[in-house]
Amino acid sequence: MAIVDVRNLVKRYGDVLALDHFNLQIEQGEVFGLLGPNGSGKTTTINCILQLLTYDKGEIELFGQPMKPTSYDLKRRIGVVPQDVAVFDELNVRENIDYFCGLYVTDATERRALVDEAIAFVGLEDYAKFRPKKLSGGLKRRLNIACGIAHKPELIFFDEPTVAVDPQSRNSILEGIQRLNAEGATVVYTSHYMEEVEQICSRIMIMDRGESLACGTKDDLVRMVSTGEKVEIEAPDLPDGTLEALGGLPFVRRFSHDGTTIHLLCDNGPHNLANILGVLQERAVVFGRVYSEPPTLNDVFLEITGKELRD
């Protein structure tokens, strides 16, 4: 069953079309990555799903039920971790988590246990009495996450939670998200960072200008694009005809030699490197380091959304 089901969603800001008949289905237990450049409509999508924004057209269902601004029973099952740290500077770590958890859980005893668990989950036990101003950027991010997950939601929206975070904290956050998913939560994750999405997401959607451009697993996406495998081989002394022989291989699309290294761009294939090395051995070419890079999500993203700079 799709836990999130968005059909033909249209959202306009005046003359600007932010979402253009957008469709999205997320299954229970997934970590779903929503990728897109700035202004692609990621946050608009999430806000429409959460009913924080009105929309012009379309249907949104969560947990198999229509989502409306007054669907408080559905909202109770959702957690949100916004992009910017949204906590109260006047309250300490425990009070902040308790406050946001209290919006969902009214029983104080139950809440106390949940707050303790959330503090332990993000590793803020030593900072429970600290106010946010005394926390580092990474610790603030962890507090931000704790505030969104303390009530143990079944569906959690993470909106770029690792922006401006050091590598250690980022790693900790990503591990935490995977643990939440392992405990049964469905996660919707938006980010600019391809490696993060590659690392934790089971399915990925690339969207731009309010439209879904591609959706699937990472392998599905890689297969969709023409960007092929890049191969680089150190070979300073290249006998005559070798480069042409490499270029004659059926899967090689482009080839060049800069005096020290051979650069090849190949179609995706299972035995590309073996065939290339076979040609070099036939011609007794002495070569050094060999580097092969299959297409990455970054290649996919750039090919689909274009390489021009965005605002």
Binding site: N47, L50, L52, Y72, K75, P82, A86, V87, L103, Y104
Partner: peptide
């Protein structure tokens, strides 16, 4: 962001 968080609560 605080309004967003509170607004998405029940």
């Amino acid at each position: 962001e605080t309004r967003r968080r509170i607004g998405s609560s029940p």
